[in-house]
Amino acid sequence: MQQSSGSITVRLFAALREQAGWDQRSWPLTSGANALSVWQALGFGDAIPDGTRVAINQEFESPRQQLQQGDELAFLPPISGG
């Protein structure tokens, strides 16, 4: 088991939030964790679906960007603005 090294905040929006039944939670940060590994650890599936994007501290990032203590990680389902 990987060692915990602090925590991050995970946020969900729109359809993802409704499917999960929560919008925000604290999540233990393990060494080397990234958005993809958190997605898997949350039980959402093996891969982040096409069109779902990742934001870290409110900036778009790669799902493989390593997370840091205190980060705000958001999973953004396909956008439909304008």
Binding site: F13, A14, A15, E18, G51, A55, F60, L76, P77, P78, I79, S80, G81, G82
Partner: peptide, 27 residues
């Protein structure tokens, strides 16, 4: 406008007259 539609985080949920709700994915 196209940048807003694709890269600004907004999500639309349609609410029909019968009360059904549906999230719209994409544009």
């Amino acid at each position: 406008l196209e940048a807003i539609k694709h890269d600004a985080p907004f999500w639309k949920q349609e609410i029909s007259r019968s009360g059904d709700r549906r999230w719209i994915e994409g544009n």
